[in-house]
């Protein structure tokens, strides 16, 4: 699992700022957050085998703090095998599954420049929401300790 996660730890172009979103981990590494230097969250990913859709949906629902409702349709799944991860294993069975939630995608997509968006505190342990063009990089707890 650890090796697979390191293969998946790639940077991605951020839809918010066109910068590079890097991955940061939560929950002992079972959750990954793609976050840009401005702390905008482009994607939340769950890793495991098996994975619990309800638990992940509830996790994301908690992260967005009531600003939107997360449905099953907002979560997409993928199986990762030894052969596509490029792992040299005697067994080629399933290595892990991923679940993805992508911000501002499909059903929830909005071009409103004033929309509320999800950010990840620069201290790396909590989510917060602000206007998509907001400049805060810290959650309110870290701003006002």
């Amino acid at each position: 699992m650890e090796v697979a996660r390191s293969i998946l730890a790639t940077t991605a172009k951020c839809s918010h700022c066109s910068g590079q979103a890097a991955i940061e981990y939560l929950e002992g590494g079972s959750i990954g957050v793609h976050v840009c230097p401005g702390r905008y969250v482009s994607r939340i990913i769950a890793y495991g085998n098996p994975l619990d859709l309800d638990r992940f949906r509830e996790f994301v629902q908690g992260a967005v703090q009531g600003t939107q409702r997360i449905d099953d349709t907002d979560v997409r799944v993928a199986s990762r095998y030894a052969w596509d991860l490029g792992l040299d294993r005697a067994s080629n069975d399933l290595i892990l599954k991923e679940m993805y939630w992508t911000q501002n995608y499909r059903r929830a997509k909005s071009e409103d420049p004033d929309r509320v968006a999800l950010f990840f505190c620069a201290n790396g342990d909590s989510f917060f929401v602000q206007a998509v063009q907001g400049n805060e990089r810290l959650c309110s707890k870290c701003r006002n300790p």
Binding site: T10, T11, A12, K13, R43, I45, A78, S79, W83, D84
Partner: peptide
């Protein structure tokens, strides 16, 4: 047999996974 799903993390990971699959014992 399902053998590959695209990588939402980025096209480069999907490209690498396809190359790995085509180079696999399958």
């Amino acid at each position: 047999r399902h053998v590959l799903t695209g990588y939402s993390e980025g096209v480069e990971l999907t490209r690498r996974a396809v190359a790995n699959l085509l180079n696999s014992p399958y």
